[in-house]
Amino acid sequence: MNALFTLAAIVAVISTTMVVTRTVAVHALLYLVVSLLAVATVFFTLGAAFAAALEVIIYAGAIMILFVFVVMMLNLDRDDADRENTWLTPRVWAGPALLSAVLAGELLYAGIAGHGTIVAAREVGPVQVGLALFGPYLLAVELASLLLLAGLISAYHLGRDSGRGG
């Protein structure tokens, strides 16, 4: 299990780096799918099989498909990729990269310094999750449904507007 975790973690880090650095949108998107699948594997090794399944189905499946459609509709070509290249000069990315590195370093430091004893992950099955969701978190579920409804309505509205306003 530990080997699987390490492998998945390495894949996740590499593919995420690729997402951030690619110039062609579709390439970046594919790397993002890989990254999400790797994280799903990590979920699985942590004993959260339910979360892993959701990650694959909703993130890597549904949301990424949405991205793919939009990228197709944007009709990006060679020029766009070249322009990305001109935007990615070291002068541009050095500062933000440093900032992010510092933040990640701080988080890593907090993560390492924070735990005294290393405790093994314990498996949490879908039954438990379901009981929690429709028990104490019922209100949160309702809120999430409302949020999704709001997203649905606004996406519909914006999309219709673009079709008409052209």
């Binding site: 500062g95 900032l99 510092v102 701080e106």
Partner: peptide, 11 residues
């Protein structure tokens, strides 16, 4: 960027 800088400082 400023958000991130703020987070860095707070952290």
């Amino acid at each position: 960027g400023w958000l991130a800088a703020g987070s860095v400082a707070a952290l």
